[in-house]
Design a binder for these strands. Structure first.
Lengths: 335, 335
DNA sequence: CAGACTACGCAAAACGTTACGTGAATGCCA
DNA sequence: TGGCATTCACGTAACGTTTTGCGTAGTCTG
């Protein structure tokens, strides 16, 4: 409630001096500084962010836009991000859009009108047109996370999918699996493509063929995976292991196997690129990659703050964060 | 980028008239209204929220404060809430505090300084002192969700825990369970108390005793449950069913049982007051109450908007939302 | 010791909006 | 036709900051 005016009156100086003292934007003598700080304490003064925003044209707020805040991934991201940013005095607006680009752009618009200092966006989609639209909608420092948008002019943080694919494939190979089913996600999504490519590459390095009938696509919804599994497991030579790209697939796969009366890992091994937290305690525990979401958040925050801080002397940066493989009980060794 | 000034210039009227037209706060002739709206369209004008906030002393933002945004419950709440509020033009700031009251109050402070129109708070703790501190920290319409703070002067939305306890207990009784272990949570937490009370009551109504050695408390962390389960299952007469109050307990319980080599539901049935989403497809599927988080959010938004709209002619309201029991496979029938 | 520079403090002008008070038309009735 | 509401448009003052430009004192330099 106390305004800068009150402080000035108490300290018996002008509001200019108060502002200069607090922000250190102009030289103020030691003596006056002391008087000002005392007055600030007495008045219990905190600068009004709104007035400051109006004057400065930018707020100490960053906006987070994700497809669905209710997914563990996004929720975790939001938490870590908020932590990283509140430490440096920023707070967060957020919005989720259920993968609807129209809503996404409305949200961008909304955040822009609120003069956010920056945005973190987990894009709903991808592609040239989208990248372009994004570029003209966004006029504030922004970093993209999770999915990659080709040719976007923004910094981005994403998983090291190639490494992830290597980890998964090598692990399965080490256990003796050769007939590995791979559920490919939505076509054109970078993470899906990269993971699949990494898989093929690792198989090739090992000198093993990839059976076409074991590769299913597009499989990005639960029902797809449910159906795909039925087909896969009724093949003459069914796979000994199934690799899932995301949680929807994983859940569909598990449900599908259960539906067929098949046990994991006794009848077939399952491995996933995308784990989820509270899976421990359940049988089977799914062997899966663990994303270091905290690192992703911190990296994203770093990139964002650097841009906000005015470093513009370099092009878009792409940071890849390494996943790790968490071995649980869903894969068995076969001779 | 276009300001009200631009609109005024284009429409050849004063900014007063533009404002009056847009907000309908003063009579403006039909003809001028038309000119103004045309100009608005031409200029692509949207009132600057920041300037409006400054002038009006309140922003079209509501703040959400939860202990941990990364929990499915909070994430789901955030999503549903955001949906309900963005429909009426509000956007959301959020913060999570890891159950640390100090951080919680700092967040309240922060949101207040940003002049949020209202807040939704899932309190970190409870009790008289807390209620009082809350009352003097919060000067804006606020609704409490999840946990109840006794004597708080705020509207609140919470589960119908008594009903939930009835549903759970009756279901177990119907399956033939009489020796039911109950893990009580943190003492003094209303939800925990209410659930436990409801359990005892339902047992009493059924004419069944509650064995003291089957009631464990306080059990609110995973490790507690893990340990409690070991003790329970080594009793001379172990329980045939275990009721968990929250997810931490549930996970600890499942891990503890697994650790002892006990199968659910063959060796013991498990039921929980608190389910979590993606548990389907896993064995066993935990029979649990399902909270209607969407209803909770909508209710909370309703109460909040009513207060913001200026209805102050009634005392604090408490709304209870009914849970439902989702039967999965973690409980077996015993003769 | 004069002149020039530095350090410091203040008044006032923005930022874009809403709302108060004033005043000029218009319409109505006597 | 004069008086009086009523209607409507407008100028202007806020809201609480930051920042620009300017003035005054004190300090250095030659």
């Amino acid at each position: 409630m106390a305004t800068i005016k009150d402080v000035a009156r108490i300290a018996n100086v002008s509001i200019t001096t108060v502002s200069a003292t607090i922000n250190g934007t102009a030289p103020v003598s030691k003596a006056l500084q002391q008087r000002v700080w005392d007055a600030v304490k007495i008045a219990g003064y905190h600068a009004d962010p709104i007035a400051r925003n109006l004057r400065m044209g930018v707020s100490k707020t960053i906006g987070l836009i994700v497809p669905d805040i209710a997914t563990p991934w996004a929720a975790h991201l939001a938490k870590a991000m908020q932590r990283a940013l509140s430490d440096v005095g920023y707070n967060m607006l957020f919005a989720s859009n259920d993968d609807d680009p129209e809503r996404e752009f409305r949200e961008i618009e909304l955040f822009s009108s609120h003069r956010v200092a920056g945005m973190v966006i987990a894009p709903t989609t991808h592609g040239e047109a989208y990248a372009e639209r994004l570029a003209e909608a966004v006029h504030t420092p922004t970093v993209l996370v999770d999915r990659i948008v080709e040719n976007a002019r923004f910094d981005a943080v994403t998983d090291d999918n190639q490494l992830g694919a290597q980890l998964i494939t090598r692990y399965l190979l080490k256990l003796g699996h050769k007939e590995i089913a791979f559920l490919v996600g939505r076509p054109g999504i970078s993470s899906s493509d990269e993971r699949y490519a990494g898989f093929r590459e690792t198989m090739a390095v090992a000198g093993l063929p990839v059976r076409d009938d074991l590769v299913r696509r597009p499989v990005f919804r639960r029902e797809h995976a449910f159906a795909a599994v039925q087909q896969l497991m009724t093949l003459p030579t069914p796979p000994t292991a199934i690799a899932c790209i995301n949680i929807a697939q994983l859940l569909g796969t598990m449900a599908g196997l259960q539906n067929m009366g098949l046990k994991v890992p006794d009848d077939v091994s399952v491995i996933s690129f995308d784990g989820f937290h509270p899976a421990e305690g359940w049988q089977p525990g799914i062997t899966a990659l663990t994303q270091d979401i905290t690192s992703i958040s911190i990296k994203a925050a770093e990139l964002l703050l650097a841009r906000i801080g005015g470093e513009v002397d370099y092009g878009p940066r792409l940071v890849r964060v390494a996943p790790s493989l968490t071995v649980r009980t869903s894969c068995r060794s076969i001779q």
